[in-house]
Design a protein around this nucleic acid. Sequence first.
DNA 1: CGAGAGGTTGAATAAAGTCAACAAACGTGG
DNA 2: CCACGTTTGTTGACTTTATTCAACCTCTCG
Lengths: 233, 233
Amino acid sequence: LGEVCNLLSIDPDTCSSYNDMLFQHIPLKRLQRIYTVGQPFDTLYVVHSGFLKTVLIDDFGTERILSFPMKGDLLGTDAIGYGRHSSETAALSDCSLIRLPFSEVVRLGRVHSEFENAFYRVLSRDITREQNLIGMLGALAAEARVAQFLVGLADRFNSIGYSDKLFNLRMTRQEIGSYLGLTFETVSRVMSALDAAGLINIDIKTVEIKDATGLRALGRKRPRTSIHSLRAR
Amino acid sequence: LGEVCNLLSIDPDTCSSYNDMLFQHIPLKRLQRIYTVGQPFDTLYVVHSGFLKTVLIDDFGTERILSFPMKGDLLGTDAIGYGRHSSETAALSDCSLIRLPFSEVVRLGRVHSEFENAFYRVLSRDITREQNLIGMLGALAAEARVAQFLVGLADRFNSIGYSDKLFNLRMTRQEIGSYLGLTFETVSRVMSALDAAGLINIDIKTVEIKDATGLRALGRKRPRTSIHSLRAR
DNA sequence: CGAGAGGTTGAATAAAGTCAACAAACGTGG
DNA sequence: CCACGTTTGTTGACTTTATTCAACCTCTCG
């Protein structure tokens, strides 16, 4: 589909020349898993609609959430390197995905350099996104992590055409905690505190951002180990 | 250089046909920076020799270390996505890098599919490596992080031909802490404890791994929030 | 309508951070 | 080559933060 191009932000003109028949839609029910750890890799997926989570499974069978993909995000990129999935992806809501066989991606890249470049960019942005998460996990207090999580989510909702002021969380406190490296109790407490401080309104899954600037400031504030940390030289 | 192929683990036969003139060696002095945040991107680098660190700079000018690249690692991949470097890289020892202009990489990929595939794999492995770091930062106790750090380092030294039993740390406790999301005091304490427990011998920068199995076990142990965490279903 | 999952809140605990003192190693210039 | 200041590393005492454990509430869905 030319849709794939839109989703990957590729010039639509170039897109129109692609063979549309190659990519099939895949409907997913809530809680369904697309691929699991260890499964041989041969295809990527682009999210067409719906909300998902990608998780790492540790030696105890415990989930660590790595991302909450939504419309336009590419799934499965971590499996290219070793030919097997090292994480798994599950639907948080009913979803529609577009199958993107990796061999097709490579073939298309060889034919359309625009597409190839876009694909490189998408992979690299995955790297950047994860780096930001690493920065957050290692250096920020619980309050700042939750604040950043909320503004990040708002920005992403905004970029796919939803309101960035009022939206629904698709994941549980538990899942947010797993993503942020916090317990669900801490997430709950911080959210209550942000509500009490007048920065947000929260009612279970419904979030209203009342002071985006204030939230952003909180998210930037207070590296946990700020005092004797490395200064760039 | 055919050397680039070795470094990226590409079949040497395919390599021999490449034009060797395209890649130049870059010598770096200790503490020198290769690129800095915001710098426009046009070239990647492969580490030929030496040890480096890649760092994220936060809003306060504080460094967060993202990786400790060594021989065979590819630098600069996070800049492909937005055309600018979002992190910076500095030499921890005198180094030698190989310049790999991105346009050359793309061109070579179009000519040699083997090379293109290898490049995709390298990008994807970057993603996987970061995911493992995220898993560690969010869920493991200080002791486990340090243990994992040491065995990880040992494995990497081993894979580039050094001893995995006795090696030198090229970074300070501060830098290890920045990488693991811990203060340098905690790193120091944990290392002393591992020494006292007989798992390692440590004398400032010199590390001897005495019980790799025990260390690995420690690194796998005790997700901090194990009790009421998500079970894979 | 009842069971279970999800969410909130409180009190106690444990883990890592902070601050401080000191020792050892490094490296730079006399 | 030595002296001296700076950086790096270790350890201790104390504090803070987030976790743990527990009670309770609400909503949802068979």
